[in-house]
Design a protein around this nucleic acid. Structure first.
Length: 568
RNA sequence: UGGGGCGUAGUGUAAUUGGCAACACGCCUGACUCUGAAUCAGGUAAGUGAAGGUUCGAUCCCUUCCGCCCCAACCA
């Protein structure tokens, strides 16, 4: 990546430039992405990883992937594995620097003892309710508002160093029950920032850790642990989301007390997307309650969901670059993401003809049993993609919506007596319409003009419409999943009175089409293969697809100006 | 209430840090077209949350006000 392409610089790069000027970190840049393995990564995480990785790239620095696994209650190996896979898929290279906060537990423990010895931390026997009360947050006042009070010292605040050392050791040995004691930093119970009112550093939690097993009975809290993790790894710029801004004084305090390497924490706004929920808790709920089919359901905003849906990593990278980075709370329109996806796929996806809702067409003047093999361009945007063969036969399928018995104005497709082009094949003219008892069109008859083979008329006559088609006999049957937005509202988090965010789910987010017909060239393609079904959109073969049961997912539709005309 | 942040077209970011606001997505025209796609050309749209002030000149500096977000877990 050259930095010449970036004429404007975001506020984080501005800060780094200043550091480089002042020499604060000797011109070094080291970043990290520190996910907690308690869920799958989503597009918001992609923004964070790519930001951190991009910073390292731009400044010739290094990037670490680090699992912030300090709370065994919620963390699982499954999540660790998925995160590694997703980050790699995004094209991020951590060059072997894959770390776990839990590997630093011993050092953190030693530092905690140092703070105790320095009289800067103490063991507190207050219950969580008492801690909250003493911290100075009265629940509500008469008017129902929360009020902040000065805060009172814990009665255990002035224990001797010896007693603290002894109790802390015994906490670690598991002598006390969960929740009965904590190690707290001795800062200032009157501090206007509540985070500074003697925050908890360790809690007793006799839970098995996914990597440490039962080695620990106490686990460090985020505020205590995070700065240490960054410091140990020599991080220079620790980027996190806005809600941690309040925590920066604490991040700084711990590092200053210890006198160790002190990175700069920088906060930026997390990504919000229209029609999408981004909270891990809610995504977990969607999965657990079966509103979607797993974390990688193609409707999910997870990296794995988007990958399964067919979104290319390149599009996600481009998207994250385009949304920029700032401190303003914002909501990005999903159309921008879709635009990025289309842009990449338009260049790369081979074209294929697939009929979603087949309508039979009989070419009455085409010989029965004959197969005419035609050449079709694989990708008009990329000549090197070459051509392929598509079989033309007497019986074909076209898209149901490409035929209208009584066409409105501006309808350029097939209708009785009208001539259109079948792509890469022939001009055909509709001569007859066959209906069933209910009056439904079940089949149409056409004649073809042999002179137009390949799609051009030697006499120079033009047609208004070109349709995709497929041979009825020489095509493959497929199942196609049509995905729409998972939620019906721009901001699914905002529920109407008396309703929950789940009521905003779009009931039509998935339509499964069966009996679709795809040209035979995809027969040997495997899961993940992505192509454009001409005139319809981009589709990929789903991981559940088999030889006997071909399954496609619709990644994104093509832009459709005919639809817009219709809606007017 | 206390503390911490943020306000620029519909949306997201810019603006040589004081020189009459740009880019992208969206939207609307038109051209072209064997994808009603893509591409190309053009257009619509903010006077920068508000009011004052400093200045020849303010998105940028100062003051006051307004609005929105976050925190007040032994989560991260």
């Amino acid at each position: 990546m050259s930095d010449s392409e970036n004429k404007t610089i975001d506020f984080i790069r501005e800060i780094i430039n200043e550091h480089n000027k002042s020499g604060r970190f000797d011109g070094k840049v080291q970043t990290r992405f520190p996910p907690e393995p308690n869920g799958y990564l989503h597009i918001g995480h992609a923004k964070a990883v790519l930001l951190n990785y991009g910073l390292a790239e731009d400044y010739n620095g290094k990037f670490n992937l680090r699992f912030d696994d300090t709370n065994p209650e919620k963390e699982e190996t499954e999540y660790v594995e998925s995160i590694i896979e997703d980050v790699a898929w995004l094209g991020v290279n951590w060059e072997g620097r894959l770390f776990y906060a839990s590997d630093y537990f011993d050092r953190m423990h030693e530092w905690a003892i140092k703070l105790i010895k320095d009289g800067k931390a103490y063991v507190c026997d207050q219950t969580d309710e008492e801690i909250r009360e003493y911290r100075g947050t009265a629940k509500t006042d008469e008017s129902g508002k929360r009020v902040t009070l000065p805060g009172k010292d814990s009665p255990y605040r002035n224990r001797t160093v010896e007693e603290n050392l002894d109790l802390f050791e015994r906490m670690g040995k598991g002598e006390f029950d969960d929740g009965t004691r904590t190690l707290r930093a001795k800062i200032d119970m009157a501090h206007p920032n509540l985070n500074m009112r003697d925050p908890v550093m360790y809690r007793i939690q006799k839970t098995e850790h996914h990597r440490q097993g039962n080695k620990w009975c106490i686990y460090p809290m985020y505020d205590w642990a995070h700065g240490l993790e960054d410091s140990i790894e020599g991080i220079t710029h620790s980027c996190c989301s806005l809600e941690f801004e309040n925590h920066r004084p604490l991040y700084d305090w711990f590092l200053d007390q210890l006198g160790i390497h002190h990175p700069q924490q920088i906060e930026f706004a997390r990504l919000n997307l229209t029609y999408t929920v981004m909270s891990k808790r809610r995504l977990l709920e969607l999965v657990k309650n079966g509103h979607v089919n797993g974390w990688d359901d193609p409707r999910m905003p997870t990296i794995s969901g988007m990958r399964r849906r067919g979104y290319p990593a390149e599009a996600l990278r481009d998207f994250c670059k385009r949304i920029g980075i700032a401190k303003t709370d914002s909501m990005v329109e999903i159309e921008l993401l879709e635009s990025c996806v289309r842009q990449v796929l338009n260049q790369k996806a081979p074209r294929v003809m697939g009929v979603l809702n087949p309508l039979k067409v009989v070419i009455t003047n085409f010989p029965e049993g004959e197969v005419d093999v035609l050449d079709a361009v694989n990708n008009p945007e990329d000549e090197s993609a070459g051509t392929r063969k598509v079989p033309f036969t007497r019986e074909l399928y076209i898209e149901r919506e490409d035929f209208m018995e009584e066409p409105p104005k501006k309808f350029f497709r097939l209708a009785p007596g009208r001539e259109v082009r079948l792509r890469y094949a022939y001009f055909v003219t509709c001569t007859d319409v066959v209906k069933d008892d209910k009056g439904e069109v079940v089949e149409i008859h056409c004649t073809y003009d042999p002179e137009t083979r390949g799609g051009d008329a030697p006499d120079g006559r033009k047609v208004k419409g070109t349709l995709h088609w497929v041979s009825a006999t020489e095509s493959l049957e497929a199942e196609v999943n049509l995905y729409e937005r998972l939620f019906a509202n721009e901001n699914p988090n905002k529920a109407e009175e008396g309703k929950s965010w789940l009521d905003n789910l779009n009931p039509d987010s998935l339509a499964v089409l069966k009996g679709c017909r795809i040209e035979p060239s995809v027969a040997d393609k495997e899961a993940g293969f992505i192509c454009q079904f001409e005139r319809q959109g981009y589709f990929n073969i789903d991981k559940a697809s088999t030889k006997d049961r071909l399954i496609f997912n619709r990644t994104v539709t093509l832009k459709d100006s005919w639809k817009k005309i219709q809606e007017k």
